[in-house]
């Protein structure tokens, strides 16, 4: 990994410029706040459930391109999934950005974050949105922190 564009792939830059589902959900079933005190990144995630499936999910916050694009792509990917499926994806994403994944193919679009595990200081940026979703689904109201 020696080129800027290998880490900052076009899809990451695109989600950073135009984050998807970047809004508040009024009357959400679940909500959580996450922050990375080290860099001041903050994110809030809202989830609406219908028949055990995530019918709507949205986020807002401020942060670097890695954290913003990761949260944005996450909302795209978990919409329509069951809680369990979303949690499963969270675990696979964690593996991808911390130790790297053997099976990148099956991760689909998330594979653009494969470069992150070579940058330990950026792992928390990539996983902040996911941790916050996880906290929201578990019904944790106190803000979670990556520290």
């Amino acid at each position: 990994m020696s080129d800027m564009r290998e880490l900052y792939q076009e899809m990451i830059l695109d989600h950073n410029r135009k984050p998807r589902n970047f809004r508040v959900i009024e009357g959400a079933d679940h909500h959580a706040e996450g922050q990375n005190p080290l860099c001041g990144d903050q994110v809030q995630v809202w989830v609406k459930l219908e028949d055990g499936r995530i019918s709507d999910v949205a986020f807002q916050g401020q942060g670097c391109a890695i954290s913003k694009s990761s949260a944005s792509m996450m909302t795209d990917l978990v919409k329509g999934k069951t809680r369990e499926e979303a949690e499963e994806l969270f675990l696979r994403f964690q593996e991808l950005v911390t130790v790297g994944s053997e099976d990148i193919e099956s991760l689909g679009r998330l594979a653009v974050f494969a470069g992150v595990h070579a940058f330990p200081s950026r792992v928390k940026c990539a996983s902040l949105g996911w941790h916050t979703l996880h906290a929201a689904l578990k019904g944790e109201e106190a803000p979670i922190s990556t520290e």
Partner: peptide, 12 residues
Amino acid sequence: VHPHDIGTLLDL
């Protein structure tokens, strides 16, 4: 551009 992104890119 967030400073953290700049930092990583400069490191590269």
